[in-house]
Design a protein around this nucleic acid. Structure first.
Length: 437
RNA sequence: GGAGGGGUGGCCGAGUGGUUGAAGGCGGUGGAUUCGAAAUCCACUGUAGGUUCACGCCUACCGCGGGUUCGAAUCCCGCCUCCUCCGCCA
């Protein structure tokens, strides 16, 4: 949610940002509607408060008169109070309608963009920031061929269980997946100062609204049938959802910041609208594993935090010796909630291309406003007013895609795959996976 | 799944339908006292919205949502949640 003050004071600024995102006209005109709704709302609140104030004083008079036994006078005032009652009810009803519309419109507005976000329509307009490593020049087989020859992936049988876009890993494949998860978590908790969380994989609607997946992108989610504990519920598409919402509707103490969490979770995505993309293999699945990094920080320190967080994800790729590049997403490609976003793209030799393996976003105060997450700044030891915190997150990393990258970047001429040295302690010392004879 | 008991301010804990935004205590902040500290004393100490140049004033909030009433923390209904016991279960 945008700062309501910016929305009220400078609607044109908000519109300019919407245009950088290539937003459609209806979204842009909703800004004017929001200004109008705010004015209406304030007028109604003023009138309602005045009527309530009058009611309160009269009711106190009734109480006093009743105690003195002056029944008749009390009855007269009762009638007077009753007269204002209908108007109060009417105002409340109108106000509820206005608030509902205001809420719907403001929850549909995406975040403002950082100045660094380049103009553009799609991923072809993203800006390369830096590269690391030297990509191998030969075109390998795809990870699917490599893995099947190693006997560590069974695509055929997985479809029996739940259809397309699922996979069954076997033997060293399953172990590799598990090793990556533990490697990621151990590095982030012991070297980068993150606290590990294990969280629910199901979240209520309001939680997904908090991080910004809802209300706009319900089609991308798996929704549970019926209600769970009284609310609509969804499988989480990323650990960002439960972890960022952990402190919703709280006021954190300033000295608690920055707060850094990491969490491993499965992620569930319906991949609506991705028909025909990455249909083979592990790249795009309905269910995948991810270790997520989440920060809560003062807004002034969000940019610095964003660089650090991105660096933590990069560390993993570097340890694994996987070549990658860092991209700043353009206005047309950046996600709804993000203020600025770096994608890490790993080299996939079979495709001769860099593919996304991590997305590191700075949300500024956008998510915090949606979920009522605040902190109390420390100013010379004195308590200041609570204000919205900044939130950030990044994959550290997507596990399945890392497995893909290892297979393709470490496959040898004989079809075996060398395990990156840094990972071997988590693989029980195994140095190489070889095809079954 | 069955039975019962709770949810009040940062924390503990009162609260008869009418100056209760909420006693009292703890904690916190400022001040007095002190060479300094402890102890003691005094004052302040929630969030949001509206309004005001500002001091301030007004409104709402006692798990959440509805209802009764001139007036609800207090009465009624629904929901969420926590605890205890029984059953079942990884």
């Amino acid at each position: 949610m945008l700062d309501p003050r910016i929305l009220a004071d400078d609607p044109d600024l908000v519109k300019a940002h919407l245009m950088r995102r290539n937003a459609d006209d209806s979204l842009i005109s909703s800004v004017d509607r929001l200004v109008e709704l705010r004015d209406n709302r304030n007028a109604l609140i003023a009138e309602g408060d005045e009527l309530r104030a009058a009611r309160n004083t009269l009711s106190k008079q009734i109480g006093a008169l009743m105690r003195e036994g002056k029944r008749d006078e009390a009855e007269g005032i009762k009638a007077e109070v009753a007269a204002g009652k209908d108007r109060i009810a009417a105002i409340d009803e109108e106000l509820a309608q206005i608030e509902a519309e205001r809420h719907a419109l403001s929850m549909a507005l995406p975040n403002l963009l950082h100045d660094d976000v380049p103009p553009g329509n799609g991923d072809e307009d993203n800006l390369e920031v830096r590269r690391w490593g030297t990509p191998r020049e030969d075109a390998t087989e795809s990870h699917v061929e490599i893995a099947e020859k190693l006997g560590i992936l069974d695509v055929e049988r997985s479809t029996k269980l739940a259809g397309a876009r699922f996979a069954v890993l076997k033997g060293h494949g399953a172990r590799l997946e598990r090793a990556l998860i533990n490697f990621f978590l151990d590095v982030h908790t012991t070297e980068h100062g993150y606290e590990e969380l294990m969280v629910p994989y199901i979240a209520h609607r309001s939680i997904l609204e908090g991080t910004g997946q809802l209300p706009k992108f319900e089609a991308d989610l798996f929704k549970l049938q019926g209600e769970l504990n009284g609310q609509d519920a969804f499988l989480i598409p990323t650990a960002e959802v439960p972890v960022t919402n952990l402190h919703r509707e709280e006021i954190l103490a300033g000295e608690e910041l920055p707060k850094k969490y990491c969490a491993f979770t499965p992620c569930f995505r319906s991949e609506a609208g991705s028909a025909g993309k990455d249909v083979r293999g592990l790249i795009r699945q309905h269910q995948f594993h991810k270790v997520e990094l989440v920060w809560f920080v003062e807004p002034e320190k969000a940019e610095e935090a964003h660089e650090q967080l991105t660096g933590h994800a990069e560390t993993i790729l570097q340890r694994l010796g996987l070549p990658y590049r860092v991209m700043t997403l353009c206005g047309g490609d950046i996600s709804f909630s993000a203020h600025k976003c770096y994608d890490l793209e790993v080299w996939l030799p079979s495709q001769g291309a860099f593919r996304e393996i991590s997305s590191c976003s700075n949300f500024d105060t956008f998510q915090a406003r949606r979920m009522g997450l605040r902190y109390r700044p420390e100013t010379d030891g004195k308590k200041a007013k609570p204000r919205a915190a900044a939130t950030l997150n990044g994959s550290g990393l997507a596990v399945g895609r890392t497995l893909v990258a290892i297979l393709e970047n470490y496959v040898q001429d004989d079809g075996s795959v060398v395990i990156p040295e840094a990972l071997r302690p988590w693989m029980g010392g195994i140095e190489r996976i070889t095809p079954k004879a």
